[in-house]
């Protein structure tokens, strides 16, 4: 949870994922959409921000042979980069989708760690034209069999995650998705950020933001 100053508008802190956690720095990758992110973009080196965190869980690195498939939609790619770095020895397949070319993030950095992402854009300005879940469905149709073993990790807009849930059922995949909900406290106190799961409402800030894909009720 992050705020840029003591202003009353924007009032609440905003949730962001950790893009990378380096020795002395943490990095956040964000999209400018509104009040706070517009203030953030004008900050200069050495300006002070207030952050509480890290909060909640992260993507679990599962044991076993399952080959990871990472799927990032738009700014939802942000939390997947560190994961890709951590599990690069498992040869993850990385799908990145966005509306247009300039919203496709950090492909250069991915290549530097030996991952060549599969890309799609809604307008066809980079990679295949169309939504990334269609590209994934195509891939699975050709590369999935009763003996293949994949684990998916995804973050992105709601329609993408919903579609992924259907694909995971169809191709019998396990996996994890990171969800977003409006937040106020970030520490599990206010019950603002719940999502509906097979075991009732759960807090994205505390029990999440990462949930097993089969647990979410859309």
């Amino acid at each position: 949870m992050l705020s840029a100053d003591n202003s009353l508008d924007p009032l609440l802190k905003r949730p962001f994922s950790l893009f990378r956690w380096l020795d002395k720095d943490i990095q956040i990758l964000y999209r400018v959409v509104g009040k706070l992110t517009n203030i953030l973009k004008d900050k200069k080196p050495d300006d002070i921000l207030e952050i509480i965190g890290p909060l909640g869980n992260g993507f679990p690195v599962i044991k076993g042979k399952a080959r990871p498939i990472l799927i990032g939609g738009g700014i939802g790619s942000a939390p997947l980069f560190s994961l890709a770095e951590t599990i690069k020895h498992k040869k993850p397949i990385f799908f990145i989708g966005a509306k247009t070319k300039k919203e496709i993030l950090y492909t250069y950095a991915l290549k530097s760690i030996g991952i060549n992402p599969i890309i799609s854009t809604d307008d066809g300005t980079l990679g295949q034209k169309g939504v990334i879940t269609n590209v994934l469905r195509e891939f699975l149709t050709h590369h999935s069999s009763p003996i293949t073993d994949y684990c998916i990790y995804a973050c992105g807009p709601r329609p993408m995650l919903k579609e992924l849930t259907l694909l995971s059922e169809k191709f019998n995949l396990k996996g994890y998705i990171a969800l977003e909900e409006n937040m106020a406290c970030g520490v599990g106190a206010c019950l603002s950020c719940v999502v509906n799961t097979k075991n009732g409402f759960k807090r994205v800030c505390k029990e999440g933001p990462v949930f097993p894909i089969e647990e979410i009720v859309w």
Binding site: L11, N182, A184, C190, L191, S192, C193, V194, N196, F201
Partner: peptide, 23 residues
């Protein structure tokens, strides 16, 4: 009590609306 379905909060100028629903 389970409370209301999400979204449950929305920020407004210098304030916030909540409909937690007494979960």
């Amino acid at each position: 009590m389970a409370g209301n379905p999400p979204p449950r909060i929305y920020e407004t100028p210098c304030g916030m609306l909540n409909s937690i629903g007494l979960q």
